[in-house]
């Protein structure tokens, strides 16, 4: 390690931050990081179930007239099954991502099927596309199993479970922007900051609670908690130092959304994608610890 020059009082000079250094750090974080593939694989597997929960009923091939919708349905189920078991995982994930995002943009925006234009539909599509950019085929997949078997047959070490995780970084950027812009939107609307928005939503959904919903102050408190928490999640979750304090509040926030409001698959998708925030190598070590792998045999040991 280079020696640090100290001044006459024995103090090291303050670190100097420059935009160039920050930019290079951002690029290194975004596109130059090679890390464990396990969190990518877990996201890949989880997304399949979310996709099926949202779209499988609409994509049943026997409901169609054997035209292009039937072909769409068949490709949908073949691609999602391949994505689940991890056969040609990156290709099948990419195909699934294209189909999922087409639900949003083609059926929703172009053909005007409004339920497909909601946030949770967009998230399914964009998260699947980004997952295809991760090394999701290198772990928990048929591809991995075949690669390990091939390596053993050839008498060499099995391939490492690692790859460039820029797809996970894109998911982090999207999560950050979602939290930031939704907090901005809430802050710009008087009806939300005054608590009246949440009050009217609860009056619509829980009308039988009657006069208990007439008190405005709980809704004012809830509104401001949501706004402040979303700003905190936007600026705090991408950084390890603050992440540890925000994970539980973030999960609780989405848990409340899921329990109290008709959010569809939105909350479960975001909770699954929280894996993208965590250091992939740390996720790998946790799984190794759960499996009883001794530290000396871990592929990604903790930094010294």
């Amino acid at each position: 390690m280079a020696k640090v020059r100290r001044n006459s009082k024995g103090k090291a000079p303050a670190p100097q931050f420059s935009l160039g250094a920050l930019w290079r750090q951002f690029i290194a974080w975004g596109v130059e990081t090679v890390a464990s593939s396990r969190s990518s694989a877990l996201i890949r597997i989880g997304l399949v179930f979310v996709i099926w929960a949202r779209f499988a009923a609409a994509a049943r091939p026997w409901d169609s007239d054997f035209g292009w919708p039937t072909l769409f349905s068949l490709v949908f189920f073949v691609a999602t099954v391949a994505m689940l078991i991890g056969y040609k995982a990156r290709i099948s994930t990419f195909v699934t991502g294209v189909l999922a995002i087409s639900f949003y943009y083609f059926f929703g925006v172009v053909l005007g099927h409004e339920p497909y234009t909601h946030h949770h539909t967009y998230w399914i599509g964009i998260a699947t596309l980004f997952c295809a950019l991760t090394p999701c085929d290198k772990s928990y997949s048929l591809d991995r199993w075949l690669a390990v078997r091939q390596a053993r047959k050839e008498g060499r070490q099995p391939p490492r479970e690692e790859g460039n995780v820029w797809g996970l970084r894109l998911i982090v950027v999207q999560l950050t922007m979602m939290y930031f812009w939704t907090a901005i939107d809430k802050l710009r609307n008087y009806d939300f900051v005054s608590g009246e928005r949440l009050q009217s939503i609860f009056m619509t959904r829980y009308v039988h609670f009657g006069h208990w919903l007439e008190w405005l102050w709980p809704f004012i408190v809830m509104s401001w908690i949501v706004i402040l928490l979303e700003f905190a999640l936007a600026f705090g979750m991408p950084f390890r130092a603050t992440q540890r304090y925000l994970v539980i509040p973030g999960l609780l926030l989405h848990g409340f959304f899921f329990a109290l409001l008709p959010v569809g698959t939105y909350s479960i998708t975001i909770v699954l994608l929280y894996l993208a925030y965590f250091d992939p190598n740390q996720v790998h070590r946790v799984i190794d610890e759960l499996s009883g792998v001794p530290p000396s045999r871990m592929a990604f040991r903790p930094p010294a």
Binding site: H119, W181, S200, I201, T204
Partner: peptide, 19 residues
């Protein structure tokens, strides 16, 4: 608002509710 994603949540739900 849909092509360039706008993160407005529950923009219509609850509107028109009468108290």
């Amino acid at each position: 608002r849909i092509l360039f994603r706008s993160w407005t949540m529950f923009s219509a739900f609850g509107l028109g509710t009468v108290d």
